[in-house]
Nucleic acid binder design. Structure first.
Lengths: 108, 108
DNA sequence: TCGTATACCTAAGTGAGCAAGGTATCGTCC
DNA sequence: GGACGATACCTTGCTCACTTAGGTATACGA
C-alpha cells in the first residue's frame, strides 16, 4: 500500500516541523522523525529525499552545503518564510482532518 | 495531490466504521462520512466505489441487493467477521500513527 | 580490512485517490 | 409534460506519494 508507514501527506508536515528549530540535513531530518515518533514513523530514504526536493521546488525550504557534526559534507535545509506559512497551514489541515476522523470513530 | 481530502489510507477505516452499526449502501456510506465529519471529509464517488469493491475483494465486507429507504434498488454492504477484526487493526494503526505525529508536532 | 553508521541519490513499480465522464430512477416544481 | 435535483450505481485515465531496490562515498571502530 502507498502509505503503509505514513499516511500520505503527513511526511511534508513532519519535515517542515523538523526544520522549525533550525537547519538540518536530510539524513538528520529522517533520524529526527524516527526518534521523536518513537520508531513509529520511519521514513524510507526513497521517500525522504524526493520530498525534500519537492519542498525546495515549491520554495518552502532552502538548501546549503555545510559540515555535519561528524565532519562530513552535508546538505542543510532550512525553512523559508513561505515554508513557515505552509507549515502553519499543514498543521491546521492535519488537526482539522484528524479531529474529524476522531469524531467519526467516536460515533455510536 | 493524491489525498487532498483524505489522508490516504483513512478511507477504508471510515468505511469500515460506517458499517459497524449495520448494513449500508454505498451512497449512504459516503453521506454518513460527509455528515459525521461535518463536511470536512467528502469522499468522491470515484474513490468510494472502488474502495468498497476492494474491501469486498479482501473479504472484509459482503454485498447484497436490497431496497433503499427511498424505494430504490441499492447494494447493501455489511461487515464480515474478518472485516470487524480488520477494523480493530485499522483503528489501532490510526491511533498509533496520529499519536506519534501529535508527539512530534508537540516538540519544542 | 571489514562492517557499520553516516550521508547523499535515482529509477521503476504500485496503488489510492482525483477528475470527469456515464446510466437510471424518483419526486418536485413550474 | 418537461426540466431539474437528489438518489444510486458505475468506469476510465491520470497523477503522484510512497515502496522497493538498487547505487556512490566517507569516517570510524573492531
Amino acid at each position: 500500500m502507498a502509505g503503509s508507514d505514513v499516511f500520505t501527506g503527513t511526511l511534508e508536515l513532519l519535515i517542515l516541523k523538523a526544520l522549525t528549530w533550525g537547519p538540518r540535513h536530510g539524513y538528520g531530518v529522517g533520524r529526527w522523525i524516527r526518534e521523536t515518533t518513537g520508531e513509529t514513523v520511519v521514513i524510507q530514504e526513497g521517500a525522504l529525499y524526493p520530498a525534500l526536493h519537492r519542498l525546495e521546488g515549491k520554495g518552502f525550504v532552502e538548501e546549503r552545503w555545510g559540515e555535519s557534526e561528524t565532519g562530513r559534507q552535508a546538505k542543510y535545509y532550512s525553512l523559508t518564510a513561505s515554508g513557515r506559512a505552509q507549515f502553519k497551514r499543514e498543521v491546521l489541515r492535519w488537526r482539522t482532518h484528524t479531529e474529524a476522523v476522531a469524531r467519526a470513530l467516536a460515533v455510536g
